[in-house]
Design a protein around this nucleic acid. Structure first.
Length: 554
RNA sequence: GCCCCCGUAGCUCAGUGGACAGAGCAGGAGCCUUCUAAGCUCUUGGUCGGAGGUUCGAAUCCUUCCGGGGGCGCCA
């Protein structure tokens, strides 16, 4: 089957050569031009700027060059018209046959009809959330979670083998502080004398969980020699359970849960430092072991092993990234909050120093989320104790509206997440606009059935009865599905899918308003029922990649 | 001081080299005795933060300044 825009680009190149051979144009070298969808309907379906970019080299005015290209253009399937417009754009209008192909493909292929081919696609790991297992996820983790999840879903749809991974720091100092806090509260709850650690965790959840610990184990841990370790393990399990439950509520699945401790126990941390040392990037100074990241453009060198013999967080992270590449991923994407952006040069340096191309590690940074309630800021400090968790938000606002709010904006933009606005079932909340389109499609099909209208096999239906502009507009939008998701995946820009979904829903809602589906004309009714089937495929694909539910009625 | 993100309509944001800058909300005017009005149509509203530059062409790329947010540890 013909595929656009490739077919047009190919035809234009042929035309350039043909024009040169006919003597009306001096031969051009490699010309770099684009063929893209026209923004306005008056500009047809596809447009190329070839005449604008090549005019200077050809020594011909853009519009004249465009005319030469059009004149020598070979026959192209599905092409209905070419026009020269504006400063020298060539616009291509497709025949309605093309859109009936789009309809058949979408209607028969279901939501997966526009999935990309996996042939030759990079194997990609997406690592995200990766919150420390010492407390609930907050909204920032939630944003990273939704962004990583949608990127992974989009990559998968585009044809990439994808592995979704959660890395948890269950070793390290933060874990000690958390365990010590739990331990102190546990002992205090049992009436024992215990001092709360100065750098302990103050969240009210710590108190709640210490209470659970007492309820579960009573004073069984009090006199144990390995009390702290037992409590640490219990606390780890408790936190992980909370995190897993929250992610499940948010519909964010993972393929691999990777433990930092496993790196230490497997000797990978020490081994990775050895690798760096062998490659000449390690030195000792003031009793500490240093990684010469400045060799790779970092602003200063970084400590791997502190003078007290403890690893810094960098050491296991080096080991972890080495492990990722040893597992054979072509590309590794990490989704981090903006507060970690300064860490990128270090991590890139590590990958480089280990002998891997640092470009294979990509970091997607997402900006902060401010939580408001009816315009008033909600305090978000972990330390202050009172903070609204991601789970609280999911439970209050619902997974659909929460996910949409976190996915619909560019990761580069700071989000002001207003709980009241997100809960409102209005157009402040475009998630309903998308879902309503789906519910409407289902409702139309139900109504047809209730009226005794049976949809005939598509081969027996005259799709050429779809002649309304609104019908064609739906199919024009439907045609974009595959490339929009692929583009969103390639740019790591999940919000593009939400934008596209809104465009599609708009076209559908307009169709609904313009065209009555169940009519006195059975042929038209049949054709429109198939248009709805195709539309369902598209909207379900969009909702699926965004991880939103597709309600059959609202 | 250095680094990252943002600055586009009253508000929240799309648009990162193309053709008159878009959407939703808010404001104004219409559309339900036949398929869901969580919808549709029309309309008001913009020096794309400022100034230079590159280009046939700049909201988009470069420089610089201004404003807002975040980050710069032998913490993670």
């Amino acid at each position: 089957m013909t595929s656009f825009p490739d077919a047009i680009e190919h035809a234009v190149r042929i035309a350039l050569v043909a024009a040169a051979e006919s003597g009306s144009l001096s031969p051009l070298g490699d010309v770099s031009f684009v063929v893209e969808r026209a923004r306005n309907r008056e500009h047809g379906d596809w447009a190329t700027n070839v005449a604008l970019v090549a005019a200077k080299q050809a020594g011909v005015a853009p519009r004249d060059l465009a005319a030469l290209v059009v004149e020598h253009l070979p026959d192209l399937e599905y092409l209905a018209a070419t026009d020269i417009a504006g400063p020298g754009f060539i616009n291509f209008t497709l025949a309605s046959d093309w859109y009936l192909e789009v309809l058949r493909t979408a209607a028969m292929g279901g939501p997966d009809h526009a999935r990309g081919d996996s042939k030759g696609k990079e194997r990609i790991q997406v690592e995200f959330v990766s919150s420390n297992p010492n407390g609930p996820l907050h909204i920032g983790h939630g944003r990273g979670g939704v962004i990583g999840d949608v990127i992974a879903r989009a990559l998968d749809y585009a044809g990439h083998p994808v592995s979704r991974e959660y890395y948890y720091n269950d070793a390290g100092v933060q874990m000690d502080r958390y365990a010590a806090s739990l331990e102190a509260l546990y002992l205090q709850a049992l009436g024992k004398d215990a001092e709360f650690p100065e750098d302990g965790y103050h969240g009210s959840y710590v108190e709640d969980w210490a209470g659970e610990l007492v309820a579960e184990h009573g004073d069984a841990f009090v006199d144990l020699a390995d009390r702290r370790d037992r409590i640490r393990q219990w606390g780890l399990d408790r936190a992980m359970r909370n995190i897993e439950e929250t992610l499940e509520l948010a519909r964010i699945p993972f393929d691999v849960w990777f433990s930092e401790t496993s790196l230490h126990e497997g000797g990978d941390v020490a081994r990775s430092i050895d690798v760096l040392r062998e490659r000449g990037y390690v030195f000792e100074d003031q009793g500490a072991v240093w990684f010469r990241t400045t060799d790779f453009g970092d602003e200063k060198n970084r400590v791997l092993v502190k003078s007290d013999g403890e690893y810094t967080y960098i050491a296991p992270d080096v080991a972890y990234h080495r492990d990722k590449f040893e597992r054979g991923f072509d590309r590794v994407i990490n989704v981090w909050g903006a507060d970690h952006h300064g860490y990128i040069p270090r991590m890139k340096a590590a990958v480089d120093a280990l002998g891997y191309d640092p470009d294979r590690l990509e970091i997607v940074i997402n900006q902060m989320v401010n939580v408001n309630r009816a315009g008033e800021p909600v305090r978000m400090s972990m330390r202050a104790g009172e903070f609204i968790s991601f789970r609280d938000v999911l439970e209050e606002v619902g997974a659909d509206a929460t996910r949409y709010t976190l996915a619909a904006f560019s990761p580069d933009t700071t989000i002001n997440f207003d709980l009241e606005a997100a809960k409102t079932q209005s157009m402040d909340n475009p998630v309903y606009y998308l879902q309503y389109a789906h519910a409407r499609m289902c409702s139309l099909e139900r109504f047809a059935r209730e009226q005794g209208v049976e949809r005939l096999p598509i081969d027996e239906v005259d799709l050429t009865r779809l002649t309304d502009q609104a019908e064609r507009a739906v199919l024009r939008q439907a045609d974009r599905l595959g490339e929009e998701i692929a583009e969103a995946a390639a740019r790591r820009a999940p919000h593009r899918i939400a934008t596209y979904g809104t465009d599609f829903a708009t076209a559908f809602h307009r169709f609904y308003a313009e065209c009555r589906v169940v009519t006195d004309d059975p042929a038209v009714t049949q054709a429109r029922l198939w248009l709805i089937e195709a539309s369902k495929s598209v909207i379900q694909a969009v909702l699926g990649v965004l991880g939103l539910s597709a309600p059959e009625s609202m």
